[in-house]
């Protein structure tokens, strides 16, 4: 019946501050029967850790479980159901910290990607049926919040030349070929690529391309 409550629903929250977000998450937890939530931003420059946007986890548990496992769990389904991609050790580690019934909900807000981990101490507490609705409501909340804070992804971080070079590399061209296409020397093309990698915080080209595609730059 809690799911029904979520289906008829309270008014959609106008989330414009972090405080609103936390209140909103509290409401979501009540509606789906979760004790804890963890919202992580997955649109980080890879190589860095996923960033926690909001959470009511005990700090020790975050430390103990590790943000990488949290981010992984948040991407993959429900731990009490088949199909999730955590190892039994990982499930056990979560359970030891009181996260027995765990549902990962991927959330998108425009190009930004988040993952929400909802968990309960008792198996079978969470209402899977409500998950799709939660996904949309979180997407609204995060869209509103990012609109207010104006943090668009690093859309203009790259110069036109850097972007051009990257997009040709993403088409499988070599540095030399990119040089020919753009009418510059191979070493000039290379320096565009190097500076693009630096700006994107990427340690190599594959990561630079992936980051650029993920944030809609190319």
């Amino acid at each position: 019946m809690v799911a029904a409550a979520l289906a008829v629903s309270q008014p959609i929250a106008v989330v414009s501050t972090r405080r609103d977000l936390i209140e909103f998450m509290r409401q979501i937890c009540r509606d789906v029967g979760a004790d804890r939530y963890m919202l992580v931003d997955l649109t980080v420059r890879t190589g860095e850790q996923a960033r926690i946007v909001a959470s009511n986890w005990i700090f020790d548990a975050i430390d103990m479980i590790g943000i990488d496992l949290i981010a992984k769990a948040a991407r993959f389904g429900r731990t009490t159901e088949p199909g999730h991609q955590l190892s039994s050790e990982e499930v056990e580690l979560l359970a030891q910290q009181g996260h027995v019934d765990v549902v990962g909900v991927p959330v998108r807000a425009g190009r930004a990607r988040y993952a929400l981990l909802l968990s309960a101490e008792k198996a079978g507490s969470l209402l899977s049926r409500a998950v799709a609705k939660v996904e949309l409501l979180c997407s609204y909340a995060l869209s509103l919040l990012s609109g207010k804070q104006g943090f668009e992804t690093q859309v203009d971080a790259l110069s036109d030349r850097e972007r051009e070079c990257l997009s040709w590399v993403a088409e499988g061209k070599t540095t030399e070929e990119v040089g020919v296409i753009l009418g510059v020397s191979g070493s000039t093309a290379n320096s565009y690529l190097t500076s693009a990698m630096q700006k994107l915080g990427a340690r190599n080209r594959a990561l630079a391309i992936a980051t650029a595609i993920r944030s809609g730059l190319i």
């Binding site: 990607r113 590399v169 993403a170 088409e171 499988g172 080209r205 594959a206 391309i209 992936a210 595609i213 993920r214």
Partner: peptide, 19 residues
């Protein structure tokens, strides 16, 4: 149907095979 790894990574991302 990619010519090299960079191309493969880009295609896989665009097809949504990886994220």
């Amino acid at each position: 149907d990619a010519v090299n790894r960079m191309h493969a990574v880009a295609k896989a991302l665009r097809f949504g095979l990886i994220d």
